[in-house]
Design a protein around this nucleic acid. Sequence first.
RNA 1: GCGCCCGUAGCUCAGCGGAUUAGAGUACUUGGCUUCGAACCAAGGGGUCGCAGGUUCGAAUCCUGCCGGGCGCACCA
Length: 591
Amino acid sequence: MKQELETAVAAACKKLFNVDVDVELTRPDEQFGDFATNVALQLAKSLGKNPREAGTALAEELKALPEVKDASIAGPGFVNLTLSDDALRTAVKKAPSALTKTYDGQLVVLEYSDPNPFKVLHAGHLYQTIYGESVANLLTAAGADVHRVNFGGDVGLHVAKTMWAILDDFGGEHPEKLADIPEGERAEWMARCYVAGTRAYDEDEVAKAEIVGLNTRVYELFTSNDRDSSFAQIYWTCRQWSYDYFNAFYASVGTTFEKYYPESSTAPLGLKTVKEQLAKGVYEESDGAVVFRGEPYGLHTRVFINSNGLPTYEAKDVGLVMSKWSDYHFDRTIIITGNDIVEYMKVVLKSIEQFEPELVKRTTHVTHGQLKLAGGVKMSSRKGNFFRAVDVLEAAREASREATGRDDEAMILGSVKYAFLKQRIGPDVIYDPKESVSLEGNSGPYLQYAHARARSIIKKVSGIQTFDRGGSSVVQSDGLQAQSPEERPRETHTSGESLDAASSLFEAGERSLLRKISEYPEVVDRAVNELMPHHICTYLYELAQTFNRFYEHNHVVGDPREALRLKLVEEYADTLQAGLTLLGIAAPEQI
RNA sequence: GCGCCCGUAGCUCAGCGGAUUAGAGUACUUGGCUUCGAACCAAGGGGUCGCAGGUUCGAAUCCUGCCGGGCGCACCA
């Protein structure tokens, strides 16, 4: 609807003023109308006209459009448009198919979460998982073929630190002692070892030297394909424990990754690529290391291969990017990480751009801020007072129990997801468990409740009217693309009245709700284009408020306009559900 | 020191390809449940949009400088 109107407004400008303009319609305050444009203000100068004059002429011209009930000039020169009720109804009916297929047929590789084996899944990983999953849903809705992948360090210094602490704990290379670690405590035990290893590395010179040695040994497990030595048995078992834990955790929050790219697999390719490009002059040697000089591009210099000949994170990332490229030949790849590595990533990508410019052109790096607990508690995975992914969920669970006395997992997950997603991606996120589980205000549970309440109205009516249709099938039916769309309510109750009432088919409250529902595709489009799900959150909350206002003043069941209103409730519930689904949040029929 | 990001109501945030009277939530005050789930709705107080310039008919939004906060700047990830 929006696009058609924009085209029509542009055409009107062409006709009236003989100019080509890109018209961007906005959604003004409801009192002004359904859409607004400021083209008159833009054009006034070049046309040498008074903006109100130009706007008045444009408004007159637009009144002739069949979709437009009213057009008027306002303020300095805005043209406000009000849709006809027919146009509004059509817009809502078409809403599901109105999504712009921005990514139609494109293969998109989405990389997020990226936890390291041998370390803990921390709160940031959870944030990325939730955000990434929502982006995946958005892209899919926009027509993309999305592949979720995950990158993580199964080699590197952090692994050596954990391994050192394990060996220290076991008093040597005793893989048989792994059996003593209870299954449910494996992940936590490894996290503790990492902390112990890190402390030893920082405080004990001897341990530090041993850890550096272990780092090389871990790499050698791969080059020599060692799976049998005592050291290898410990390493491979713990590595698998990590991946098992990741998979279980992701499943519990509703994500499945198609592919893990362990660093051990990207390191050789990265090393090879960097060495090749070293020969071609992209990288250069410096103090025994291989570096990329970023200064000519306004960036800084980074080490890709250290002076021991081992690939650093930089080289592994080169390998990762190259692996994804050869595996998928994607149209676009989106990498989601914390914003502490923005500059780092620029250097890595700039270096790759020197030999694979197309690949870099297709890469988007999205970053987010740190997750903080309300109250200003700081966390550090190094010190061991880390804020783990499970801690976030546990905090929500506890707050929810306190608030409702219940333990509803769908609601708890919805709380956390919504709390994370409602904020614009980028800045730090302050998470307040109590607020997130609150049933009042802009929260996940509020929306889940709003949805369940609407479903219960529908259920109630279907129970009274036609036992034949069955409650469950009614609520399951997708009203937005329903087989029996708006005709039924219209003909039943309103078509007759509408003929003499020149004003409108819908009463004010009904129209407000309908108008709000009609915005859905525009909001999703925007969220897709900006990769920002928070637009959907803002919208859904406004939608629920609009509905509650309608519901407060308009009876549905038993009203002469019941059929039409019921249809509205259905459209509303379907829209709410669709939006929540895009966010990765469950919309139960009952809570 | 250099670079990147961020400063909007007490708190947490929308709005930032300029524009119709700066919006929500929360907290506070008040009113509304014999009626479809009140987990709701309505009303009120609360803002020099960090500060100062600039561009513009018009700036929270764009540009410059400053102040405040976060992060990053060679062999960690």
